[in-house]
Amino acid sequence: MKILEVMTQKVIAVKRSTSLFELIESFRSFHSFPLVPVTEENNNLVGTISFRNIMETFRSTSQKILITIPFVDKEELDLFDLEITPEMGTLCIVDDLMQTNFVSIKQDADIEEAHRLMQLHRQEQIPVVDEEGKLVGMIGMFDILLALFREKGVIK
């Protein structure tokens, strides 16, 4: 079964210039914060944002530098100890938060390949792109499960 047949095509994507305030407003009614794709004006996928990426931004020291340092005692993220100020809502933009080294999959790939990538990268969702790298949808574990249930007659 191809990804194109089971993926979610209605996706909320954000731009690099979207502020933290706008980002949160877009998803505050959701049960939980999803993996959000970031696209350019021509719909090219350039990054993703997860809940963890947002939290990392408020750490006191830059985590991106710390990952290369050996022997550093790992500091668990404490939600109640983050440095948050009101102006961050407008000052912080998606470009600062997003992950540029992200996983994506082509729409004509098999769902087995999507499942393999999700397991390998420990992700529940992956953005789907066309041949030119433009965002066309999202595929998640739930989409794959739905497809399997449909195939086996559990649901219609």
Partner: peptide, 16 residues
Amino acid sequence: TAPAATVMVLRETRAK
């Protein structure tokens, strides 16, 4: 040098 010790001080002092 010892990055771990320096990072610990930076975290502790919340230096910015």
